[in-house]
């Protein structure tokens, strides 16, 4: 007998919003806001939450019973050093990034290497809305409704070879579009990596949008990785290349400060950053910090990936 142990957060058909209500959700919300039922949303609605960006119809497949961080904060408090080291620099400077035309090269140890146009890539798999926690290594966190599809859909399409053990990712390198790359704060291009089993994990998302619309440039347009159980810097933005390899690939923050940022960088309240504690985090919008959860609260689904590993050594 097959027993399916679904994660607590798994959604059943009965949880889905009825389609007509879903299609009209903005009108429904507008009505509620107009009636003063949801005053905290009024401001966001006035600003039109990324109104210039195309809508991305998707199906809610993962929710989280925690307040979502406001669209304004999600898009104006960013670490994206390609556009400057200040938290509001990316929102100010990312306008220069051209996200069309855009291609992603998928190559290395795969039987079907290919260059995929972004508009084809977005249609590769049904788009899902997933609400994830995002924990920055600096000690702050957000709750973000991403739109995207599992990375494993793309990897299965290119058919990894048996020798492939890791996946390496690379961000665009272009000083004219990314003025922060003139500084030597990090080596460019930004590179990241995952073990193949981490990359194939159903939680690992390729995000193309947030809050129901395409990604704003400062959040990693047109396509980025989201690995919710790892510190935010693992979730590489504005990806141009994905390469399957047989050895652990170099990663940007690890090159910059190997004693501070490991390859794994799983959220772990018991392993401190050398300069500050990782036991707590401040959710953007809160006054006081809260406890940080092991694997950022996704331990039930991912801890088996690291069974038997010394997490203090492989931090």
């Amino acid at each position: 007998m097959l027993i399916r142990n679904l994660p607590e957060s798994h959604l059943h058909e009965r949880d889905a919003t009825p389609e007509p209500l879903y299609r009209d959700r903005r009108a429904v919300l507008a009505g509620m806001i107009g009636a003063g039922l949801m005053p905290h949303l009024a401001q966001a609605a006035e600003e039109g939450e990324g109104s210039g960006l195309p809508r991305l119809p998707s199906r809610l497949t993962r929710r989280l019973d925690e307040d979502q961080t406001s669209y304004d904060s999600v898009t104006h408090y960013n670490n994206f050093y390609e556009f400057g080291t200040g938290k509001e620099d990316p929102a100010r400077n990312a306008g220069r990034l051209r996200t069309r035309p855009w291609t992603v090269r998928v190559e290395g140890l795969v039987s079907k290497p290919q260059t995929i146009d972004i508009d084809r890539l977005i249609r590769l798999a049904p788009l899902e809305e997933r609400v994830y926690r995002m924990r920055c290594v600096e000690g702050w966190s957000m709750v973000i409704p991403w739109v995207g599809f599992p990375l494993n859909a793309l990897l299965k399409m290119v058919e990894p070879l048996g020798k492939a053990k890791f996946v390496a990712f690379e961000t665009l390198k272009d000083q004219r579009q990314m003025p922060g790359q003139r500084s030597s704060v990090l080596q460019w291009p930004y590179v990241e990596g995952l073990r193949l089993d981490e990359a194939m994990h159903p939680l690992t998302l390729l995000a193309v949008g947030l809050y129901g619309r395409a990604l704003p440039n400062q959040n990693g347009a047109p396509i980025r990785l989201v690995v919710p159980w790892k510190y935010g810097f693992k979730s590489i933005k504005s990806i141009v290349r994905i390469r399957l390899v047989d050895r652990q690939p170099p990663t940007s923050w690890n090159i910059s400060a190997p004693q501070e940022y490991g390859f794994y960088s799983n959220v772990n309240p018991t392993v401190d950053h050398p300069r500050w504690s990782q036991a707590r985090e401040r959710r953007i919008g809160d006054w006081l910090p809260r406890a940080t959860l092991p694997y950022n609260g996704y331990g039930a689904e991912v801890s088996q990936l690291y069974r038997g590993m010394n997490l203090k050594r492989y931090f």
Binding site: D72, S73, H76, Y77, K87, E88, W140, I284, G285
Partner: peptide
């Protein structure tokens, strides 16, 4: 007031 609107960023404590 919204913290970012008054120049305290989205994370006023930090």
């Amino acid at each position: 007031s919204d913290p970012r609107a008054v120049g305290l960023s989205a994370e006023p404590i930090d």
